[in-house]
Design a binder for these strands. Structure first.
Lengths: 193, 193
DNA sequence: CGTCAAACTATGCAGGTGCTTAGTTATTTG
DNA sequence: CAAATAACTAAGCACCTGCATAGTTTGACG
């Protein structure tokens, strides 16, 4: 998948973090083993102990590494309009790079069981929701905090659906539907019944 | 947690299925081991092999067992109105019995990796969405298929949030927000701009 | 070059894993 | 009651796990 031969001296740590995300995305947290990660990263499995100490620490660092790299979806969430082009872009992003999203779902479920991951999970979600809320404020919506949480949940749920049980086109239609709901809500605010 | 002492003759299989859901919900799929399940179920671990053969088969049967028992949320999804009382009931259900929901998130992620689980995952989600769509049709909405998918995704995403990163009150507000969006959408349909 | 710290690997082990084999108990059935 | 069947358990094995230990290679710097 990545470069065929070994990494250069000093690149092992980065390769291990990237491999961790890939392994969790493809095989789940129960497929996350020293051997699996080290084989994908093309290094010896004891290098994980050297760099991170324990498996828990590896996951923790991989979470930090992945969330800084998950900016593209955050940018998407802050888009000015949830319209056809937004829906197409979101669906295409998920189809092209599902790993980061899959990793995040695994990680957020794990954060319920491991208190030391909670803080980063909360920060990740609140980051998305805050960006979305700012966009809603700009467009003149009211009750933006709860609205942003609801809209993000809808996008989050649809991404999960696309990754697991639903085809891309259905998801795209549903995303457009969310945009339509927001428009209707804006007009209702301006012309209350 | 359950009854303190052993099961009666013939109840082992059911106990194992219930224990599987609990173990996956509390420790994740990587915590799903023969020993963990059998200890929770208060039986010998080889009874799993006897009844189900392999660990894969155990999970598969547990999925079927759990989905038939997840009707309560399905009934909720088919509620006539998404209002304050619906929001309160949903939030309270998740807080009181998080196991079934957590199990479903683990299972739907796993279904991406295990083709034999896909069909049941799709059926579960489509069941929820269809029930919701019927309710939307009754209320006079249009484009109900995509709308139902979007609204279910929002509820699904909010349940995930409540289970992991968000407090119950914030989720409740957001659920009410979804109801408000639907109302605004209905009125916009009747009085287009 | 020589020194040194950090990156990296080879080997191996104690404990946990899924699951097999062989045997025991309880329940049904004639 | 006796025979048959299914539920259940005890013991154990081959394999995999995280990770410790000990050693080697690499690049930076004087």
């Amino acid at each position: 998948m990545a470069s065929r031969r070994h990494n250069r001296y000093g690149e092992g740590r980065e390769a291990l973090l990237a491999a961790t995300v890939s392994v969790v995305a493809e095989r789940g947290l129960h497929g996350l083993t020293f051997r699996a990660v080290s084989e994908v990263a093309q290094v010896n499995n004891t290098l994980i102990s050297h760099h991170f100490g324990t498996k828990e620490a590896l996951l923790h660092e991989a979470v930090a590494w992945a969330t800084t790299r998950a900016i593209r979806l955050s940018e998407l969430s802050a888009a000015e309009e949830i319209d056809e082009s937004f829906a197409a872009a979101l669906v295409e992003l998920i189809a092209r790079e599902p790993h980061l999203q899959l990793f995040q779902y695994e990680f957020v479920l794990e954060s319920r069981r491991r208190p030391e991951l909670r803080e980063e999970a909360v920060a990740l979600y609140e980051g998305y929701i805050d960006a979305l809320e700012r966009s809603l404020v700009r467009k003149g919506h009211t009750n933006t905090k709860a609205l942003a949480r609801a809209v993000f949940a809808a996008l989050d749920g649809l991404v999960l659906q696309q990754l697991t049980v639903t085809d891309a086109d259905s998801v795209r239609e549903a995303v457009i539907c969310i945009g339509a709901l927001l428009d209707a809500n804006l007009h209702a605010d301006r012309q209350p019944a």
